[in-house]
């Protein structure tokens, strides 16, 4: 039971999993961006190319949060 190495390894994996909680916000953000984009395209189909570009851009920025979480998780597992 008192295996320090195993405890640290387990805690690392747990920490990485907790770090990925940051992906929740990114998921919500991407969903909101998609919802807004589709609504805008439904109202004004002619503006689809512009809306699509900006929607994907906004999604990419929202996703960046999840990517930072992923970076932290990977660092915890592989580097720390």
């Amino acid at each position: 039971m008192n295996d320090a190495a195993a405890f640290i390894a387990g805690m690392k994996v747990l920490g990485a999993g907790l770090a990925m909680l940051g992906a929740i916000g990114a998921g919500v953000g991407v969903g909101i961006a998609a919802s807004g984009g589709v609504q805008a395209m439904g109202r004004n189909p002619d503006a689809t190319p512009t809306i699509q570009t900006n929607m994907i851009l906004g999604m990419a920025f929202a996703e960046a949060v999840a990517i930072y979480a992923l970076a932290v998780a990977l660092i915890i597992i592989f580097a720390a």
Binding site: A60, E63, A64, A66, I67, Y68, L70, A71
Partner: peptide, 14 residues
């Protein structure tokens, strides 16, 4: 640089 790199890497690696 960080978000650029990790976005592509994260998606493809996952």
């Amino acid at each position: 640089i960080l978000s650029f790199g990790f976005r592509l890497f994260g998606n493809i690696f996952a």
